[in-house]
Structures are given as structure tokens and as C-alpha cells.
Amino acid sequence: MNGETRLLAPLVPTRGYFPDFLTPPEGLHGIGEALEAVRATPVERLHAELSRLPSARPLPAWIQAMREGESRPLGRLAGVLHSYYEAAVAPYWPRVRARVEADRASRGRALVDGGADQLLGSLPPTMRWRSPVLEVDYPVDRDLHLHGRGLLLLPSFFCRGAPVTFHNPDLTPVLVYPIERTAPRVVPPPVPAHSLGRLVGRTRSAILHGIGGGCTTSELARRVDVSLASASQHATVLREAGLLLTLRQGNAVLHTLTPLGAALLRGAEPEEYERPA
């Protein structure tokens, strides 16, 4: 992976600008479609965006060639991105996706409970909703005017610190923000064998089915018709087994299924959820 990291470093610095074409909207549909979109980037856009990279150091020859419209370097970039994805992202994808889906469930619940004001007010502290302006702790001073366009909010496991958006204001307005983290690293801890052994019985099966798109412990107790203490205890066992996630939302907690939990309900084999399409 070190080779891929060295090749990508000039394009994606740890701080500051990186080209918009590296994060195409097709990425929502998987790595395959994202890389196809990267390969299809028009020459004019490549030249404009790559020319904005910092000039403190000369760009590698293959990036300069890509900026001038040569097709082979663009194919090389797609290959390097795929190799990096396979090494650094795919092995941990269930954990990453579970965190992102939990955040989406929390924001969706805020929207349903209190509309757009509550949704925007529920975002991390780096973003502050003061209607009609969303203030964001951003690395540079800039304004993004929507002009009637919607704002796509994207929770990201890999976004650290300040949220990010496209450099080009004419692109679809997107705000990528960091999700809350309850663990310091991506690698999931091993699941205790005794936890898996306890995952039997009607009540826990009903708990998994009752969570649906996300619910609080009180709601879960009502859906499954058990006491609040029982619902909390069963949720703890399922969480220890890696089948659900729990996020704090105000004075309550919100439970959501992990990909493993959802796969268990579908009766899927592990291979069906360990790697994204």
C-alpha cells in the first residue's frame, strides 16, 4: 500500500485543496461506478482542477501528463485508487458502513421529529445553524450560496476535523462532515465468543426485527412488548455481538442495525456483506 500512498499524496494532500473530480457523485453507487466516472473526466476539467494543485513542488510526470489530457495516466490513477481501496477500505467496510448508516438514521430521525431546523441543529459542533445560514468551521474563508439548490449532507467516516465541500461552486452543493466516533481506530475488536452464544431466543430475534430503521430503547421496548430494562439488556448483548450500533441522541440513545445484523435478518452468508459491490 505504501506505493499507492506515495502516488496519491500529490493529488490528495493531508490539508488544503484536492481536485473535485476525485469524488464523483457516482461514488454513492460503489467503487466500480466511481472509478468509471473518474476515467470519464473531461480533459478540460482535468486541466483546470489539476492546475490548482499547490505549486511548491513540481508534480510527478504522470500527473502532468494527465493534466495535459493523456488517457493512460488517468487509467493508472483509477488502478491506483482501486488498489488503495482494496487494501485500506474494503477490509473494514462493514464497520465503516455501520457507522455511517447510524449517523444517517440519527439525522433522519431529527428531520422527522423537528424538520429541517432540527436536522441542521443536530449536526456536529463544527457546524452551527443560524437560520438562514449554516456556519461551518472551514479551513478557508468562503461563502457557498445555494441559489435555490438543495444541500446534500454526506456523513463521512474518513473526514477528520472540518467539513469539506467542492471547490467549484457550480457543482451540486455537497457538505461532507465527520461522523461521531466512539472508537479510536477502524479495526473492529474481536467479538467475544460468549456473546455470540447468547444470541438465541425469540426476544432477541424480535429485538433485531423491531429496530427497523432505528429506534430508541423506549420505542424498542414498546415494539417488542418487553420492559425498558429488558430491552436495554438485550440491546447490549446484540451490540456486543456486532449486530447493532447505539448512538446518543440528546437524552436518549438510538439503536440501528449494523450490516452484519441486517445480513442476519436476511439470512445472508458473510461474503455478501463483507465486501461492497
Rank of each mutant, 00 (worst) to 15 (best):
L265T: 05
A34L: 00
L220T: 02
A98Y: 01
E240G: 12
S83R: 09
V191D: 04
R45L: 14
P58N: 06
R222C: 03
L243N: 06
F18P: 01
E68G: 11
S83P: 09
H194E: 14
V43I: 09
L22H: 08
A183R: 11
G214H: 01
V176E: 07
R15H: 15
D137A: 13
V38R: 00
R198E: 13
I211H: 02
S83M: 10
A268M: 13
L208A: 00
S218H: 15
L257A: 05
A162F: 13
T23W: 10
N168A: 10
S227R: 14
Y177C: 04
F166C: 10
A88Q: 06
G121T: 08
L22Q: 05
L28C: 12
V38N: 00
S230T: 15
I179Y: 04
G121Y: 01
D143T: 14
L175N: 04
L265F: 09
S51W: 05
L77S: 01
N168D: 15
D113E: 15
L50W: 05
G161C: 12
A65M: 11
A206C: 06
S131T: 07
V133C: 04
L196F: 10
A40E: 13
F157N: 10
H147I: 04
L77A: 03
T217W: 08
L196T: 09
S195W: 13
A193Y: 13
P24Y: 06
V140Q: 10
E271A: 12
G161T: 12
F158Y: 14
F158E: 08
E49L: 00
L35R: 00
V43W: 03
G32N: 15
V112I: 07
Y85R: 00
E68F: 11
S83I: 04
G16M: 09
D225V: 13
A87D: 13
W62N: 02
A206R: 07
T165G: 12
R109N: 03
T14L: 11
R185W: 10
V191N: 02
P270R: 08
Y85M: 03
A277E: 15
A110L: 00
G150C: 12
L247A: 10
A98H: 01
G27T: 03
G108D: 01
L74S: 01
G261A: 06
A90E: 15
L35V: 00
G201P: 04
H194S: 11
G201Y: 05
G197N: 13
G213E: 12
F18W: 11
Q118C: 07
P163V: 08
R142E: 14
G213W: 11
R266G: 08
P155R: 01
E49V: 00
V191H: 02
H255M: 08
L120M: 00
E26Q: 11
S131Q: 12
V96Q: 02
E271P: 09
A268G: 09
L264Q: 04
